[in-house]
């Protein structure tokens, strides 16, 4: 019997959905009336997308056995660019059409900046072989320096109404930020599962040299990975601009750990090569639920941060025990007693 269809081997996959159900139940019970309310769910649906988009931005590099420590500063700096453009160029009485024009222009400019960043990072990793951690750490410092230099650390505030709608409005009952996130997640799903590029990313994550030897242009794949990652950061920056009505270096700093946590909880292998968008999205919901729940409990930001760190370690410990002790047991059961298959 193949491992894939065996009950015991697949059992751990129930972990995440179970956690989702459990957290919904527990917080609902502990905070009656406050948790299971339209307001709470709505606020979760508004809050989650910025983390979700950043997580999607981290997902591609992670699956390729790399890292992108610069996602947050990229989101910040492209957000600052867009904000600066809008604050300075959009007249306060502009009609919707004109606003949309400027928003589109701003997005275009921001994406060009993101492309540049992505190409530079990708080139260093692909052509020179600098480790992604070092590369993106360096770029993180550089971009943060540029951003703080430009803004002197101050926020750029005052988005045009169209953008504000993006942060506070809804479409068919679904909050706008969530719409953006869902569309992006769907696009990522298609990219990873149904395009050759997605396949190349998975293969590169497991063994980039073998992928190269199979005739794949891995340099282009790596650059593509970091460009797409940076482009998604632009969307994250846009959503943050919309929600906070301002842009600043430093927004979202605490999200870095959470993106890694969501990706790993979603089933990705820390060594690269594997990971599913579906799992990632599910993990994001769980994290948002727990985060909102804790918030409603009045737990401080700092304790939350420490807790997330502990959760990540716990999840990885659980994976270890699964791998080292549970899985071999389950596989032996799947293979049947006294199996001597060679």
């Amino acid at each position: 019997m193949s491992n894939r269809s065996n009950f015991w081997v697949q059992l751990p996959a129930i972990g995440l959905p179970a956690l989702l159900a459990a957290s919904l139940a527990i917080f609902g019970l502990l905070l009656p009336g406050r948790f299971w309310s339209v307001g709470a769910f709505e606020s979760m649906a508004f809050q989650m997308p910025e983390l979700g988009l950043l997580t999607l931005a981290m997902f591609l590099p992670f699956v390729s056995a790399g890292f992108n420590l610069a996602i947050i500063v990229t989101a910040n700096i492209t957000g600052i660019f867009m904000a600066w453009l809008w604050v300075n160029m959009v007249p306060s009485d502009a009609g919707t059409g004109l606003q949309i024009f400027w928003v589109a222009l701003g997005l275009l400019g921001a994406m060009l900046i993101a492309c540049l960043i992505g190409v530079l990072i990708g080139s260093l990793v692909a052509y020179v072989g600098v480790h992604p951690i070092l590369t993106t750490l360096g770029f993180m410092t550089l971009i943060k320096g540029v951003g703080i230099f430009i803004t002197r650390g101050a926020p750029v505030s005052g988005m045009p109404p169209v953008v504000q709608f993006l942060g506070t409005g809804s479409f068919l009952g679904v909050p706008m930020p969530m719409v953006v996130f869902i569309l992006t997640a769907l696009a990522m799903l298609v990219l990873m599962n149904r395009t050759s590029f997605g396949k190349y990313v998975y293969m590169s994550g497991s063994n980039i040299n073998a992928t190269y030897f199979s005739g794949i242009g891995t340099h282009r794949v790596i650059i593509g990975i970091y460009v797409i990652s940076s482009l998604i950061c632009v969307l994250a920056g846009l959503v943050m601009n919309a929600r906070f009505n301002s842009a600043r270096m430093g927004y979202g700093d605490s999200y870095l750990l959470l993106t890694v946590l969501a990706i790993i909880m979603g089933g990705a292998d820390p060594l690269g090569g594997f990971g599913k968008v579906g799992g990632l999205v599910l993990a994001l919901f769980v994290l948002q639920i727990i985060s909102t729940g804790l918030n409603l409990f009045g737990v401080s930001q700092h304790v939350s941060l420490a807790m997330w760190g502990a959760v990540l370690i716990f999840v990885l410990a659980a994976k270890f025990f699964n791998r080292r002790y549970y899985l071999p047991w389950a596989q032996r059961r799947a293979a049947g007693p006294d199996s001597c298959s060679v």
Partner: peptide
Amino acid sequence: DIVSIIVTISMQSVLFGLLMH
């Protein structure tokens, strides 16, 4: 058997979060 970068990102959050609190 956990990759060092991830452990240390986590520990940084744990330590710093607890300290600030």
